[in-house]
């Protein structure tokens, strides 16, 4: 597998050097692998940090900036960051109003963030609340599993909670908004190829030319079912119908519709997908108020797509529309 890298062991560190050079309004703590705002912390504003394994770019470092995250911790590829990183990030963004941790529901991420929050409390520093995203309908939600994965909703949540924090809302209020976004959002994804972790150098799983993996996450972990490759229209049905049935979304609901690329699928195909998704939503009477199309939460070089629907009201829409200025999302500024 060909990679545009220097040394597989240095991919994360060198990408952070690139982010620092390309985006002068951001700062990078290279020791702790944290991307943070150059204009923070702002006194009285709730700080929001997230983090996770690398390989999902622009998530999370690409969402640091005005109206979104205050800091993002980068782990090794597909590996949760460690508690020291989240603790350091929490201190960096603490403006005295508390810090929200946005955590995707993966065993490692949850444990490492939990330990960081315990350490912050033990040190008597910032008050920390955590919100866990778990929107992937491909995973059976059960007390007998690790629970649903946090995927596409994380992007929408970071934008909306970031806007709420920017308005000066309290830590509890920002956490409540974030929980509402997670509760009202659902996602599902499909892979057309596997992906290759730089240090591993070979694809994480084998997938034939005429096959697709339905219900994949964002770490190259296999999905729930392997199926013969289908058309975009058929794939859209396979993703959207389970999402609609799960919340459930009903005719008359208003949504933000997010068609995401997993890293290896070109935008032209994502727009083909968006057309199909939109057609299905129209048929169900679900009204799309806003859209987001592009690779925003990726799985390295995996070809494929995920669909996220978030049911919104006027308040969530106005927070979505609020100004944002990050490397990956920018409007209203």
């Amino acid at each position: 597998m060909k990679k545009l890298i220097n040394d597989p062991q240095n991919v994360v560190a060198e990408a952070l050097l690139g982010i620092e050079a390309a985006h002068p309004h951001l700062r990078v703590d290279h020791e702790h692998k944290i991307v943070y705002r150059g204009d923070g912390p702002r006194r009285g504003k709730v700080g929001i940090i997230s983090g996770g394994g690398s390989g999902h770019e622009p998530l999370h470092g690409g969402f640091v900036g005005l109206g979104m995250l205050d800091a993002a911790c980068a782990g090794e590829v597909f590996t949760s960051p460690v508690p020291d990183q989240m603790l350091a990030a929490t201190k960096l963004v603490d403006g005295g109003a508390g810090v929200l941790h946005v955590v995707k529901n993966y065993t490692g991420d949850v444990m490492n963030f939990e330990m960081a929050a315990e350490l912050a409390e033990a040190e008597g520093g910032a008050k920390v609340l955590s919100v866990i995203t778990n929107d992937d309908v491909a995973v059976q939600d059960s007390t007998w599993t690790a629970g649903r994965r946090g995927v596409g909703v994380t992007v929408l949540l970071e934008k909306i909670a970031g806007a709420a924090a920017e308005q000066g809302r309290s830590l509890e209020q920002v956490a409540d908004i974030a929980r509402k976004v997670n509760a009202d959002g659902r996602s599902m994804g499909v892979a057309l190829t596997s992906c290759t972790v730089p240090a591993a150098g070979k694809p994480t799983f084998e997938l034939g030319e005429d096959e697709m993996e339905l219900g994949v996450g964002i770490h190259g972990e296999p999905g729930r079912r392997r199926l013969p490759l289908a058309t975009a229209g058929e794939i859209a049905e396979l993703l959207v119908e389970p999402i609609l049935a799960d919340l459930p979304f009903a005719g008359g609901d208003t949504v933000i519709c997010f068609v995401n690329g997993l890293g290896g699928t070109p935008l032209i195909e994502l727009y083909v997908m968006y057309h199909e998704v939109n057609r299905i939503l129209n048929a169900h009477g679900v009204q799309v108020a806003r859209s987001l199309v592009g690779p925003y939460i990726t799985s390295l070089d995996m070809a494929g797509s995920s669909v996220t629907l978030l049911k919104v009201d006027d308040e969530l829409l106005s927070l979505w529309d609020a100004p944002v200025n990050t490397p990956a999302l920018r409007w209203g500024v």
Partner: peptide, 12 residues
Amino acid sequence: LISTVGGASGPL
């Protein structure tokens, strides 16, 4: 291990 491993294995 907690400071260098990450994932679930680090904390465990």
